[in-house]
Amino acid sequence: MTGAGADRQFGVAGLGAVAGLLAAWEIVGRLDVSLFVPPVSGIARVWWGLLADGTLPGAAASSLLSLVKGFVPAAVLGVAVGLAMGRFATVRLLLDGWVNALMSAPLSALVPVLIALFGVRDTVVAATVFMFSFFVVVVNTTTGVRATERSLVDMARLFGAGELALFGRIYLPSALPAVMLGLRLGAVQAVKGMVVGEMLISLVGLGERLIYYGNTFLILELYAVIGSVLLLALLISQAAQTLDRALVRWR
């Protein structure tokens, strides 16, 4: 599917690697090599300050709200459209050209269109989140449904299953692992959409802070926000993975 590495667990090794990177960074920072590599300890101090004065929590809350407003509809609609495309050839033929094209299209180009439609409002961020995450969910769900074993379908039909029973008892559970993968990749994409959208409308959330500190040359603050965005993205991708494991135990 997409994003070969996006579906892997960042375990102990990952933490070690990050710790190693941070340590090296601190050393280089202390050596005062470049303005753009300030010591990590300095960034941490500023980060703590932004946390305490409510800047980061406020921005993060606004970001998360847009994320939820965009990703929840993308997930629900994406799974529904994916199921329909997987099950009915007519629906698939009508839509798969669009889905495949938009899946790899530079959707960031559409953000100005969204601004034209909605005005400079946080709705644009939610819409960007939706756009970035919707298609991955659709594609993975479709793939999952289509990969359903033929013999399972035959078996259920032989025992008298109608369309509804086939859907609920065969297609949906068969597709579940793929659906969950789609939702996980979708969540990763959603965070990317959130950052892009917020940076482009530059009005609310962590993205706006990135632009602001970038424009005002506040390097330490900029790093603190970048760190927060990365942390948020990691937490969300971890949460999605935990949910996936809990739901698809039978593998």
Partner: peptide, 30 residues
């Protein structure tokens, strides 16, 4: 498909997400 027939499949056609008990119950359930 009619109620008098039952079938055994080459690839077993078991529901991987269901226990043995639930798999065996599946025809009765439907």
């Amino acid at each position: 498909p009619g109620p008098e027939c039952s079938m055994v499949f080459q690839d077993f056609a078991l529901l991987p997400w269901s226990t043995v008990q639930r798999n065996v119950e599946f025809g009765l359930l439907l």
